[in-house]
């Protein structure tokens, strides 16, 4: 009871930041404020990633998402939204629909999130379920509650090797049976082609049409 888990404290702090700013994105009418709120919300999410032991993903979230995506978005805001278009109020009818939708989706998603006892966290889950495996785990958890939370950090080496198709994180005896575990060489390579295509496509749309002759088509 008196044993405050700092991990939990940080979690709640980041969760409040993430959700609070997300709500602000929804409620705000000003597009610039929305963008700023989104930055904070996504940064909060990055903090949550770090807490979950996903250091690399958290860093990427900060760099690509918060850095890249938002710069893009703000660019878009600056280029397109002048004067009257910056703030756009939604009608009251929209809000009623939105409130109903929020209610319905939350009524579905929150019970869903809590529906699996195994997922309530190491200690809580162990106290509620009774299987032998789990009681063993419970003992383990009780023995060392402090360390249980951050025990598995995926190292960048593992991620990097898995991206070229070598899995070092798995139990190696299991790999001898002939079927290799998934290595992510293909997506890693092919996504580069994707990015190239996207770049060309975006450049195609964004660049002005070279004025040569009028188009033949309606």
């Amino acid at each position: 009871m008196d044993n405050i888990l700092w991990h939990s404290v940080f979690f709640w702090a980041f969760a409040v930041i993430t959700c609070g700013f997300a709500v602000m994105v929804v409620l705000s009418d000003n597009i610039v404020r929305m963008a700023v709120a989104l930055i904070f919300s996504l940064s909060g999410a990055a903090g949550l990633f770090l807490l979950a032991g996903a250091d690399f993903v958290g860093a990427m979230q900060l760099m690509i998402y918060v850095g890249g995506t938002l710069v893009l978005l703000i660019f878009g805001v600056m280029l397109t939204a002048q004067g009257p278009f910056i703030s756009l109020k939604a009608g009251s009818g929209d809000w009623i629909i939105a409130v109903v939708m929020v209610g319905l989706s939350l009524a579905m998603l929150l019970p869903m999130a809590w529906s699996v006892p195994d997922w309530h966290g190491p200690a809580m889950g162990a106290s509620e379920t009774k299987t032998t495996k789990q009681t063993a785990l419970q003992e383990e958890a009780e023995a060392d509650q402090e360390t249980v939370v951050v025990e598995h950090n995926v190292s960048v080496t593992e991620i990097g090797l898995s991206l070229v198709g070598v899995r070092t994180d798995l139990n190696q005896e299991d790999q001898e049976s002939g079927q290799l575990p998934e290595g992510y060489l293909l997506p890693f390579e092919i996504v580069s082609v994707h990015l190239l295509v996207i770049l060309i496509g975006a450049a195609y749309l964004a660049r002005a049409k070279r004025p040569r002759k009028p188009t033949k088509y309606p």
């Binding site: 994707h194 295509v197 060309i200 496509g201 195609y204 049409k209 070279r210």
Partner: peptide, 16 residues
């Protein structure tokens, strides 16, 4: 003018 771009997009989508 736009040929190369459009064909790139088509081929890229086909890979997808």
């Amino acid at each position: 003018d736009s040929g190369a771009d459009v064909f790139t997009l088509i081929l890229g989508a086909t890979v997808g």
